[in-house]
Design a protein around this nucleic acid. Structure first.
Lengths: 225, 225
DNA sequence: TCCTTTTCTTAACATAAGTTAAGCGTCACT
DNA sequence: AGTGACGCTTAACTTATGTTAAGAAAAGGA
């Protein structure tokens, strides 16, 4: 396995806190998988036999309601892991996963991880840490869905992307607008409307590039403290 | 501690899979806490020093957005545990908790649980199982919020309550309508409207008692398979 | 280059849900 | 019995978001 991949994997929440010799053993039994855009990684109900770590690209976890409506649960990229919770339980995935861009993943056999866990309690703690991160992000998401308007959610999304120090800053939208809309629980048309509404607050969007004139003001509108 | 309380606690996801002598030790160091209706159990940001198991009554976990809007994240009752995730992480609670009815809780010192965890890896698995259950329920909730109308969410809620075998059945609404509305992410007025809309599908609601004429039909409308 | 396909935006319209306000029972207390 | 508080429902109105449709801009292939 390429050293750069190992480096990314080691930095993930899932492996970060465990000794190098154990990660080496895990990675030795894992494989790199490549997925094209729109390719299915797994679907809900599949046996959760693997745990994944994203090396590159973007993918989404989602559920399809019986009505056919798609609900995007999470969007993941480099360094994120997924499937730990389901794999741990030995059950099946509660969500489906699909590549949103071309992407590369490390696929870890769940059984291997579980076997090692008996010897190395730290592994359980790592899974816990990763699962909690997901849990927390879902709690936030539920709050955002219930307590904010679409435009506010868009503003929150922009604020999260914006890792800048200065008040004025630029962000690159990491995936296409259909996916952003799905992640925020709205239709692409509403996303467009939200963007043009946010012009008032100094947000300009052109292609996949957004300029934020005042991060402070945007945060305020977004309803963050 | 009363034997009936011990029995409830042992059946909770948090303690179900661990040996009796360990649960005994945990419970010996835990205390029973009593809360009146509307009493605060903790607020978001508090140090997560305790893990709780519900013995009786109903309580809600919620977040208050800066706008003042309340988002009910979960409603819990007998046998449910909460706080494990935050306590394990040693951080602070991401949500607030308030008693919705008079209720009794077991309060387990988080530190004790963590100390035992080092000796007994099964404890980590128990926490993981409990956390996974939360995770899964949040995934479902996100899907429901994003992909269903208010009336469908109400129907889903009724279907979940309805543990009957027969097609026609009655359910008792376990908590008041303001709280049900909050849990479903709608206003109480919309809940009323949803109930009267559901008359079409053979649902009659009077006070806290609902009659479902055809469970099958209701499920169909709810959009379950 | 041109043509097709995809992606995004905009507009007009429809609908679901929030808002405001009024009214009705029920309950507890006097 | 009277009063007030509370929980719930209903109605009229407003607003946000989905729907449908059309077209502009960008991307990609021939």
């Amino acid at each position: 396995m390429k050293p750069e991949f190992v480096a990314i994997a080691r930095k993930s929440v899932l492996l970060a806190t465990i000794p190098p010799d154990i990660t080496a053993e895990i990675l030795a039994h894992s494989t790199i998988k490549h997925f094209d855009r729109h390719q299915t990684i797994f679907i809900q109900g599949d046996n959760a036999d693997f745990i994944y770590i994203v090396l590159s690209g973007w993918l989404k976890l989602f559920r399809i309601a019986p009505s056919g409506a798609e609900a995007v649960v999470t969007v993941l990229t480099k360094g994120h892991s997924f499937g730990e919770a389901a794999a741990f339980k030995g059950g099946s995935f509660p969500v489906s996963a699909e590549a949103s861009t071309e992407c590369e993943l490390i696929r870890i056999p769940a059984k291997l991880y579980m076997d090692l866990m008996r010897k190395e309690p730290d592994l359980a703690l790592s899974i816990l840490a990763a699962t909690f991160a997901h849990l927390h992000s879902l709690v936030i998401q539920v709050e955002q869905l219930k307590a904010n308007t679409a435009a506010q959610r868009v503003a929150q999304f922009l604020c999260e992307l914006c890792a800048c120090e200065t008040d004025k800053c630029d962000v690159i939208l990491p995936f296409d607008k259909v996916l952003i809309a799905g992640r925020l629980g709205i239709k692409p048309e509403s996303l467009s409307r939200a963007f043009s509404y946010l012009k008032k607050f100094g947000v300009k969007v052109e292609k996949n590039h957004a300029t934020i004139e005042s991060y402070i003001k945007l945060r305020e509108f977004a309803g963050f403290d």
